[in-house]
Design a protein around this nucleic acid. Structure first.
Lengths: 141, 141
DNA sequence: CAGCATCCTCGCGGATACTG
DNA sequence: CAGTATCCGCGAGGATGCTG
């Protein structure tokens, strides 16, 4: 079924608008967003999209700031969600490679717009914060 | 237009590719992503983008699932980041309206791709989870 | 090397009660 | 109506130590 997707993409596209109104679907999508839109998932997604297949340790270096625990957890979640594949090479020392699936690659592309936005508007956001904080401080007085 | 942005947009656009490589900028953008990519912010953003200016209570109804505390907190953060404006009408009973700024509107558009992706691939993700959980369960035996 | 297990802390976030 | 204030449980997430 192409695994889990019977209707043609064109048809789906046409239904997006209608689906967006359905509150139940909205809720499910929101839930999905809530799970994948966490900090580490996004960064791992980005790193893997840029560098391709990678080992655990190398990934930990590039993500930077992530603890080993969180990296493991994030990767497990992503594997569970079908975003990455985990291939264990039966050698010593063990060699485990992580790689984005089609699904993961698609998500990384969808998220690309947000990265660009963040890069473009970071300064505006920082300025807004300063202004806000200043206003609050003055109001305190 | 905006008050807080000296370099021209075209120039910025040209620098995006270069900036993306700079690790410091990467870190800052990552941090920004980490802050805005939380569950409630995304949903509020979505609701405001769809319905325009809205009052606090109405917002709480549409977001659905959010506690009053989290809604307040989320809105304060978004206001601080310059994503929404908060206008208090000095009447009784009090009337407070929230509305997306240009900045917020831009982010909601950037995030649009992710919403579409989530709507389109929700089933695939769910299927992947079932497969994964099954595999783990069998491995346990 | 790639992890699992354990301990421990801290702050998220819900529930409830009160106010301008 | 639109919040603030307070209490509190629980899970996220870091640090450390151990394995195949």
């Amino acid at each position: 079924m192409q695994t889990a997707f019977s209707p043609a993409d064109a048809s789906l596209q046409a239904h997006i608008a209608a689906e967006a109104i359905d509150p139940r679907v909205e809720a499910l999508v929101t839930e999905l967003i809530g799970r994948i839109a966490d900090k580490w998932t996004m960064v791992v997604l980005d790193v893997l999209a840029e560098h391709g297949e990678m080992r655990f340790t190398r990934l930990g270096e590039l993500v930077e700031g992530v603890s080993q625990k969180m990296l493991t957890k994030t990767l497990r979640q992503m594997e569970r969600d079908g975003l990455v594949t985990r291939t264990v090479h039966p050698v010593v020392p063990p060699r485990v490679e992580y790689k984005l699936t089609e699904l993961g690659l698609g998500l990384s592309e969808a998220f690309c717009g947000v990265w660009i936005w963040a890069a473009q508007h970071r300064e505006q956001v920082e300025h807004a914060r300063q202004t806000f904080d200043q206003r609050v401080a003055e109001q305190q007085k």
